[in-house]
Design a protein around this nucleic acid. Structure first.
Lengths: 157, 157
DNA sequence: TTATACCACAAAATATTATTTGGTGCGAAG
DNA sequence: CTTCGCACCAAATAATATTTTGTGGTATAA
């Protein structure tokens, strides 16, 4: 039962704009896409209700809020079984500093993205919370030195 | 010349809320933090002007817009020198499907996040655009099978 | 072809929300 | 002790979202 959502060119344009700038007013948005405010708003609401637009978020400057260290961590579990995976994801969910957790193909099982104040805080976090999750076999940290691209706009086909 | 921005408990609460839900009205936000609308708005504006809040973005449901495949790609360059890095990042910047590009420590030099419609489109993208960037030595793709956590809320210290 | 139901849209009225204004109290510096 | 400046509140105003109403175009079925 897929509702078969079809997006026309205008919808895609709306999505593009709102991904880049969610704070645009409806009037401005209407102007950019060449419609009047009423149908523009209708379209946006439709996109929200259908779940195509999931949510809206403020993005912060990590440095300025005192979060200077970001890392990716490759994690291998002791076994690939369902029980271990559930134990791991549950443990991960309780750690605020882990902002992403993806199950991936390849030699590692999971990749995490972790945010911390500095290297010291990162080390402490890893030692105290992450490393000693029971089902973890081994881990490899990749510290981000600099970020060249971090786009919030998906390439809508 | 660092303006030394200090955040009190209320500011941090505001940031937390706006990261989770940027569409909250100022009145609601004021209510949640226990202030009246006027000073609440003042604080938000201050956070925006100071650059602590960088931007606001709509987040889409990738599946529903027809983007079923997400991957991480580990990339090694032929040399670590500045020229190669610039050549690489510039090439990457032109590819919309590459939504993140980070320079990292460790054996690989870069980690990318790439979004595509499906495996076929992903393969095509890699073959035609990514693989033949001159300075790339080798790459390893990690396909995301499922995502267990993808938080937009940073743990503000 | 013609009738009919349905969208998508624009314009204007209304409701909601943001923003400004003026005034008060409190803490820090002189 | 006084004064300055800041953070705050309440209320007025301005901007914006949202609803309502009516129209034209288009696909569908007789």
């Amino acid at each position: 039962m897929k509702p078969k959502i079809k997006l026309d060119k205008i919808d895609r344009r709306i999505l593009e704009i709102l991904q880049a700038n969610a704070k645009i007013t409806n009037a401005q948005l209407a102007n950019e896409i060449g419609l009047s405010p009423a149908p523009t708003l209708e379209r946006v609401k439709k996109l929200e209700v259908s779940g195509i637009i999931k949510s809206y978020h403020a993005m912060l400057d990590n440095e300025k809020v005192g979060l200077g260290v970001s890392t990716f961590v490759m994690v291998s579990l002791k076994g690939h079984n369902k029980v271990n995976i559930e134990a791991f994801t549950q443990a991960i969910n309780e750690i605020d500093e882990v902002i992403e957790c993806h199950h991936i193909t390849g030699s590692g099982d999971f990749i995490l993205k972790i945010i911390a104040q500095d290297i010291a805080a990162y080390q402490k976090l890893m030692l105290e919370k992450v490393t000693n999750i029971e089902v973890v076999d081994n881990m490899q940290s990749l510290v981000i030195l600099s970020t060249f691209k971090d786009s919030k706009v998906m390439p809508i086909p």
